[in-house]
Design a protein around this nucleic acid. Structure first.
Lengths: 262, 262
DNA sequence: TTCTAATGCGTTTACTTTACACAATAAATT
DNA sequence: AATTTATTGTGTAAAGTAAACGCATTAGAA
């Protein structure tokens, strides 16, 4: 929605194209400079930032919708993208007056008033998806109603619209818990990467330090990565070996938690 | 919906009361005789069994809706009930003809025809919740359109309607992975229970055997249960101590998986 | 050649999990 | 009253896993 006409069409006809009462909110984690960041957007005339989101088309598979929305926001495809929860309890989601108010401020930019029984003003449940992307590869397409985009550090997320802070908290917990079961790093690292590279990535995501040597043993023991023959030239120091994710093992289906005998 | 009039009202006016395109499906695990079972229902003139489900009222919190639906089906309150996924990918959910067909068979019992653009015939996403109940305490209220109920063993679930088998698979994986983080046994065991009782429960849920002595150590180490002073008389054998769940620890929020250094 | 800052790889120690043995006990049987 | 049987209570040794740590290797710069 890059121009006023698109917005007008969306507001007037969106209910025919999309499932009402349901949105997808994306928690897009970005990795850059050994830091974990988060993509936020701010709509026209809104004080608080929001998570990027979108709607599900009436005959579109849910996962496909999530990928489409992510593509529309970042221009990236084939990402690691995972559903983690559906949010439908927060009182902010049931406060019709606040929701209508916010929408009216946003859509005023396109000279549209959203009345009380407009489809956009109705109660919405939100399906949370999280993705991991390379900060630098994201191409933001300027949308008409979006005033600004920003990447914030995961440790200093401001107060967001509606229940979006809760959504982020839950996304982060899920991401961290899945880090050793799925090949989550895939979109953040080149096909071949060095041990120090994946080491820094994991430290950024989990926000703690790990012993370099034990870390290598762990990844190899889990079968998450394989050491290659090649090395990479990194300047004035010893050339590190390259590693690659093990697809067979890495993409195995969701697992029971790490329970041992029990 | 115990009589034809209720059904007629639901079909004609349900779209005003409930959110369309969205249902809640409940995977109700029952424990009895040291076996883990599952509650299924069969609607009128349907070949396959289904999961019990329902709709979310327009201004009802999602969790509240799940509890209400579970109460309507089982007459039980205050259960351990947990959302685990939202299903919106299965091709069966997008096959309008099959859905309309099935609905027409079901609602024929109330002499209602569901036409192509009826709200019930539209595409529906389903939010999966799972619950654990004591088999014996469940009171099934006979519903007009429901031909039968049954408890099936978790290891012999028949082919179900739509994607309900997939929903069960995922519920079971989630239940098992959360068994040591949340006080899941609470609804299945009396307030005070013996070690052999909770031991059998866990074996049934995880479908494997555990060493009695290590099991006790594990539960105590996790702080999930506390040993009481009292014992229970169990007939011709040594009286076992009673245990109780530790609420403070047990009801802590969702957790990162069991990651150690990493 | 030496120095520096990084990687590669191994060993020891601590902790957690698993395997296993034997004592205690409630009631029925002799 | 002693014995038997089936069950529960608790400790301890062995195995496996994770954490701490030491030292050699190496690429380029001084």
């Amino acid at each position: 929605m890059n121009n006023p006409q698109d917005v007008v069409d969306f507001v007037h006809n969106g209910h025919k194209r999309y499932l009402p009462h349901l949105s997808i909110d994306c928690v897009i984690f970005g990795y850059h400079d050994q830091q974990l960041k988060l993509l936020l957007i701010r709509y026209h005339d809104q004080e608080n930032w929001s998570l990027p989101g979108g709607f599900v088309e009436r005959h579109e598979a849910l996962t496909a919708a999530a990928h489409r929305i992510l593509y529309e926001k970042t221009q990236l495809t084939n990402l690691f993208l995972q559903q983690f929860y559906i949010f439908g309890d927060s009182p902010t989601r049931l406060n019709r007056i606040e929701i209508q108010n916010n929408h009216n401020k946003v859509y005023a930019k396109a000279n549209i008033a959203i009345d009380e029984d407009h489809w956009l003003a109705e109660r919405t449940l939100s399906i949370g998806y999280y993705a991991l992307v390379d900060y630098q590869e994201v191409t933001i397409t300027p949308e008409f109603l979006v005033e600004g985009y920003c990447w914030v550090d995961i440790n200093s997320v401001p107060e967001l619209q509606y229940d979006h802070n809760e959504i982020i908290d839950r996304a982060l917990v899920t991401l961290r818990s899945q880090l050793y079961q799925q090949s989550i790093g895939q979109n953040l690292l080149p096909e071949k990467f060095t041990l120090p590279e994946i080491h820094s990535l994991y430290e950024a995501i989990l926000d703690r330090q790990f012993d370099r040597r034990n870390f290598r043993k762990k990844l190899l023991a889990l079968g998450l990565v394989t050491q290659l023959e090649e090395r990479r030239k990194i300047g004035p120091h010893r050339s590190p070996f390259l590693y690659a994710f093990n697809h067979e093992i890495a993409s195995k289906p969701f697992e029971e938690g790490t329970m041992t005998e029990f």
